[in-house]
C-alpha cells in the first residue's frame, strides 16, 4: 500500500499544480520526511524536457528512500521551479 507521501508524489507527476504542491509541502514533516536529494535527469537543464526529467528523492528520518517527486509546477503557460515547498528538509549528501 502506498503511503500518503507516495500518493501525493505520484499526484504531482500527473498534475504539478500549486494546489498539489501545497498539499505535499504540508504533509512532509507530518509524514516524517527529513531529507531530499536533487537528481539530474538525462540532460542538465538545458531545456524544459531536461527539467521534466530531473527530480528530487525524498527520504525519511532514518535515511530510507520514500519516493521521488518532480521539481517544477505549472504556472499558466510556463513552468516554475517548486523546491520552495521542500523548506525544512535537509540535503542528503553522498
Amino acid at each position: 500500500m502506498k503511503s500518503n507521501i507516495e500518493e501525493l508524489g505520484s499526484g504531482l507527476w500527473k498534475d504539478p499544480s500549486e494546489k498539489n504542491w501545497e498539499k505535499l509541502g504540508k504533509a512532509l514533516k507530518k509524514d516524517g520526511i527529513s531529507y531530499y536529494k536533487p537528481v539530474f535527469g538525462k540532460g542538465k537543464l538545458k531545456n524544459t524536457q531536461d527539467l521534466k526529467n530531473s527530480y528530487v528523492e525524498l527520504y525519511g528520518k532514518d535515511g530510507t528512500f520514500v519516493t521521488k517527486i518532480p521539481i517544477f509546477k505549472n504556472n499558466g503557460k510556463s513552468l516554475r521551479g517548486a523546491t520552495i515547498y521542500l523548506k525544512g528538509l535537509r540535503i542528503k549528501n553522498g
Binding site: 521551479g81 523546491t83 520552495i84
Partner: peptide, 12 residues
C-alpha cells in the same frame, strides 16, 4: 531573482 529551483535551505 527566484526561478523556484533554489535549495530549500537557501529559501530558509
Amino acid at each position: 531573482i527566484d526561478n523556484g529551483i533554489d535549495f530549500p535551505e537557501t529559501y530558509e
